Simulated scan of single mutants.
Amino acid sequence: MDRISLTPDVTFSRLVYGMWRLGDDKDHGPQHVRAKIDACLDQGITTIDQADIYGGYMAEEILGDALTPSLRAKIEIITKCDIVAPAGRYSNARVKHYDTSRAHILASVDHSLRLMKTDYIDVLLIHRPDPLMDHVETGTALDELVASGKVRAVGVSNFRPWDWTLLQSAMKTPLCTNQIEISLLEYGAFTNGDIAFLQERGVPPMAWSPLGGGSLFFDTKHASLLTALKDVGAAHGTDETAAAIAWLLAHPARILPVLGTNNLDRIARIGDAAKINMDRETWFEIYTHAIGEEVP
């Protein structure tokens, strides 16, 4: 499995296992969670994506119950903060909102460290742009976390370029990634400047929901696209899921897809995407099916 450097000291596996559905599994006991992580490690997938809000603020604890010191040493953990929803430890919140205050960020990190039973987080992301963000306060808090050793690197999620530059302007620590929605059903980032902005700066984007939440495979309006993906997958001894992910991997921006499934057989096949070396014309054939027309 290829690896991508986010900072001189932090590298991720090119494919990332996402745990946003971890709490949805009927069996989320430590042994079963370890089996999922082991299935990832068998393919060279070492990077785990979490967030404080996942599973109604329970997914981090589920992961923490499964971690041993030796297993923690084999993986990188991403987590996120700033979404406050009326659930879990925030059940008394009157309204869903964002909180990028220093106090909230520091408290969230301490919660995450305790729940995941770890001394450090590899990468902390601000989960959503906050309309009330004081960029100096937020940036200073992120710098403080890196300096403390609680967090090795920091980034953002769902930020637009102007959100990024605002926050970065108040920071000493370089932001290392932006996790945004990218897929064959959500391809706007390729043309609206989001990916170009990161690519210009040498910052690898992370792609959440890289399979379009599954609708890519079940909605009949995507039939021609699905057929094209099946053909590409079959030509490389794999399937349409691998082809859809390989389409993202082929982009020079060094996109890191975040894939979440609770099915052990599917987890074991995540790495199949690396088997496909997609050429330019194949990439555009798939893109043409996705947008529903020939490029201009």
Rank of each mutant, 00 (worst) to 15 (best):
L211G: 00
N192Q: 11
P174I: 08
V203W: 05
L185W: 06
F197G: 03
F190H: 13
Y187E: 09
E181V: 04
P205E: 01
G188Q: 15
R201T: 04
A189L: 08
G202H: 06
N178H: 12
S215W: 05
F197M: 06
F197R: 08
G202N: 10
L216A: 05
Q199N: 13
A207V: 07
L198P: 11
I180A: 03
R201H: 10
M171Q: 12
P204T: 01
D194Q: 15
A189W: 11
Q199L: 02
G213D: 09
E200F: 06
A189G: 13
C176A: 14
L211Q: 10
M171E: 05
I182Q: 12
G202C: 07
N192F: 01
D194V: 10
V203H: 02
L185P: 02
P204I: 00
R201S: 04
M171A: 06
A189N: 14
A207T: 05
G214I: 02
M171C: 13
S183K: 15
D194W: 12
L216G: 03
G212M: 09
G193W: 08
N192T: 03
A196K: 10
M171K: 13
L175T: 00
L216D: 03
G214P: 05
T191R: 14
L175C: 01
P205G: 11
Y187L: 11
I195N: 04
W208D: 01
A196T: 04
G188D: 15
I180V: 14
L216Q: 06
G213M: 06
S209T: 09
S215K: 15
C176N: 02
P210Y: 06
N178Y: 07
I195H: 04
P210V: 04
A189F: 05
G202A: 05
F190I: 07
N192C: 03
F190N: 05
S183Y: 12
T173M: 11
A207I: 07
R201P: 03
N192A: 01
S183L: 09
P174K: 15
K172T: 13
T191W: 13
Q179K: 10
P210F: 06
M171F: 09
P210M: 08
L185H: 07
V203I: 15
N192V: 03
M206A: 09
I182W: 10
V203S: 01
